[in-house]
Structures are given as C-alpha cells and as structure tokens.
C-alpha cells in the first residue's frame, strides 16, 4: 500500500543553518503519528513541510504520491496559539464558517454543517459567542471544529494542547481520540509532552537535533480506546515511556546550536 504522506531524503535549511536533514518517513492512511523532541529541533518545521507552508530545501515531501508544493485542501492544521488563529471579530459559528466559505460550500448548506461541528466539539450554546468570551480550551475546540469543517484527510496539530491546563488537556486528548476512531483521519501530532505522545500515538517519532533528524521510532501497541487512568499503567506504556525518556535525555546531551 502506498503511504499517504512520505518524506524522501527531505531537509530544510534556513540560510546556512541546516534545520532538518535526511528525513525518511512513511505515514499510512489512518495512522496517528506523534513527534517529540527537544525544543528547537525542528518539529514545527517538519509539520510545515506537510502543510505546504514551507518547501523542503532538498528531497521531497509528498501526499498520495504528489509532491506538496503548497497547502492542499485535504490537509488541515491546528495551531497551538488558538488566540491568534481565530478571527476575534467573528463568533464561534463565524469562525467555523470561515473554512466553509473558503471551500466554496453553498451558504444554504453551511448552517447544518456548523451545527453538527458545534455539537461534535461540545460547543452547544456557544455558537454566538466571540472567542474573547471563551476559555482557552473552548477556543481550541473552535479551532479544531474549523479544521474539521475543511473535511480533511490529514490533520496536522502543532502542540495543540500545550497551552492548556492538565484537566482541559486530558479532556481534549480523549475527544481527539474519539474523533479519530470515528472518522478515519490521519494525524500528525507535534508535542513536547512524552506521555501525551504515547497516549495518543500509534507511532512516536523521536527527533534528534542539530540538525534535526529522526532518531528513534516507537510503535505503540496499545489497544483503543485508551484510558487516562489505565493506559499510563499499562506495561507497554511504561516500557516505551522509559525508552523515550532515555532517548530524549540522550539527545539533550548533544550540543545545542
């Protein structure tokens, strides 16, 4: 089976600085891939390659066999800074509608789609509110709803829950898991939280830095749905967790830039 997304000897340089090098990775359709690594190792840059927001300096990154040259309608993104990614002058519904407008969805069909997404993301009753009236967690739900309105095949998430408190984060992790089980989507999820990566991922990619490259790949063979209490006690979880911590500690011993 051809992979949905593949990196072939892909690298990125900013000027003379090699940020990513020799990336080779295949992501299958429906897979949940998490990427971890020290800050500044190039996780966001890797995600931006798939998004089509940045071209590789060498090699190829492709979607369904086609090189990604610019953003594609099948690929949606969720940014960490929900406060900046939403239109502050639009209500919750208006922000979700943005994706539908952009996709040229007829006006008459938008209302039902928005209502569905609002229900799906637990935003009932908030449709008429402005982002400034919502908590961080609710704002991030709006951003996820908007990305889903795009009906993407691939969801890119750059530390989406990094700015949220622990309770909110766990709630959203479980909703994301439920969503992914319902709608067969491929997810590329960047995080610096190792437990989060193991809890959510089918695979966890550990990056080394200077230049950023794939150091170690962990397959997470833990059934779904996973559980916030039971899963972290699973022997498989604990084993990967230990190995991942060792790996990260090892990468941090390497010199920084």
């Amino acid at each position: 089976m051809t992979p949905l997304i593949s990196f072939r000897d892909a690298g990125v340089a900013f000027g003379s600085k090699q940020v990513l090098e020799g990336l080779n990775l295949d992501i299958a359709e429906g897979e949940f891939v998490c990427v971890v690594g020290a800050s500044g190792c190039g996780k966001t840059t890797m995600l931006r390659l798939i998004a089509g927001l940045h071209p590789p300096s060498e090699g190829v990154v492709s979607y369904a066999g086609q090189a990604i040259a610019r953003p594609r309608p099948e690929i949606a993104i969720v940014f960490q800074d929900y406060g900046k990614a939403l239109l502050p002058w639009r209500t919750v519904s208006g922000n979700i509608e943005l994706a539908l407008e952009a996709a040229g969805t007829p006006r008459a069909e938008r209302g039902a789609i928005i209502a569905n997404l609002i229900a799906l993301m637990g935003l009932e009753g908030d449709g008429g509110k402005f982002p400034s009236e919502l908590s961080g967690g609710m704002q991030q739900r709006v951003q996820i709803a908007r990305s889903l309105a795009q009906r993407p095949q691939v969801l890119l998430m750059d530390e989406p829950f990094g700015a949220l408190d622990a309770m909110t984060r766990q709630g959203l992790q479980d909703e994301l898991q439920r969503l992914m089980m319902q709608q067969r989507m491929t997810v590329f999820f960047v995080t610096h939280d190792l437990e989060e990566a193991i809890y959510l991922g089918d695979r966890v990619i550990g990056l080394r830095r200077n230049p950023g490259r794939i150091g170690k790949v962990f397959d997470v063979r833990i059934g779904r749905p996973r559980d916030q209490v039971a899963t972290p006690e699973d022997p498989e979880f604990l084993r990967i967790r230990r190995e991942l911590y060792d790996f990260i500690r090892d990468t941090e011993r390497e010199p920084a830039s």
């Binding site: 927001l53 610019r70 953003p71 993104i77 940014f79 900046k84 943005l98 407008e101 952009a102 795009q150």
Partner: peptide
C-alpha cells in the same frame, strides 16, 4: 495582519480578494 492569521488563510487557500 498577524502572521498566524496569514497562515490560516494560506491553509484555507483563500484567494487574494477573499
């Protein structure tokens, strides 16, 4: 316009006029 919103509109492939 904040760079983040510019990226959002690039991801949504908004035309110049939109």
């Amino acid at each position: 316009v904040d760079v983040r919103l510019v990226e959002v509109s690039r991801m949504l492939r908004l035309g110049r006029f939109s």
